[in-house]
Computed example of a mutant assay.
Amino acid sequence: MPSVGRLSLRPGTDMLGLEEIPRVFPALKWMTLSPPTHVRHVDLSPLQAMPGCRVAVTGHASVVGGEGHDLYR
């Protein structure tokens, strides 16, 4: 989906599958991740292929691998 610029994800389980985001949404500029309450850590490393993408993570999970992103909590 090359024309999608904004994306909100509310996965029902863990944050698996983020490695597919750069390939499926190459024009993404803003993403909101809302992990389930039982998730303790969110690894944004798969998104490093998209350094211009702003990422907001809701909830209480700690965030790792967010280098190169504008990260919002």
Rank of each mutant, 00 (worst) to 15 (best):
M1F: 14
M1V: 07
M1S: 10
M1D: 12
P2E: 13
P2Q: 09
S3Q: 12
S3N: 14
V4E: 00
G5H: 14
R6K: 15
L7S: 02
S8R: 14
S8W: 10
S8L: 12
S8V: 07
S8A: 11
S8H: 10
L9Q: 03
L9I: 04
R10F: 10
R10D: 13
R10S: 15
R10M: 13
G12P: 02
G12F: 02
T13H: 10
T13N: 14
T13G: 13
M15T: 02
M15P: 11
M15I: 03
L16P: 09
G17N: 07
G17Y: 00
E19Y: 10
E20T: 06
E20N: 07
I21G: 03
I21T: 09
I21F: 03
P22A: 02
P22Q: 01
R23W: 05
R23H: 05
R23V: 09
V24H: 14
F25S: 01
F25Q: 01
L28Y: 07
K29E: 11
K29V: 12
W30D: 10
T32G: 05
L33G: 02
L33S: 02
L33M: 03
S34I: 09
P35I: 11
P35H: 04
P35M: 08
P35N: 04
T37N: 13
H38T: 14
V39N: 01
V39A: 03
R40E: 06
H41L: 15
H41S: 14
H41D: 12
D43L: 04
D43Y: 06
D43H: 08
D43P: 00
S45V: 04
S45W: 01
S45Y: 00
P46F: 00
P46I: 02
P46W: 00
Q48N: 07
A49S: 12
A49G: 11
A49P: 15
M50K: 05
G52D: 12
G52Y: 11
C53P: 14
C53S: 11
R54T: 13
R54E: 15
V55N: 09
A56L: 05
A56R: 09
A56S: 06
V57W: 06
V57H: 07
V57K: 08
V57G: 06
T58A: 11
T58I: 14
G59F: 08
G59K: 05
G59W: 11
G59N: 08
H60P: 13
H60R: 12
H60L: 09
A61L: 01
S62Q: 09
V63W: 03
V63I: 12
V64P: 07
V64Y: 06
V64H: 09
G65N: 04
G65F: 05
G66W: 09
G66T: 13
G66F: 07
G66Q: 05
E67M: 10
E67L: 11
E67C: 06
E67D: 15
G68C: 00
G68E: 03
G68I: 00
G68K: 00
D70P: 13
L71S: 03
L71R: 02
Y72H: 15
R73P: 05
R73G: 09
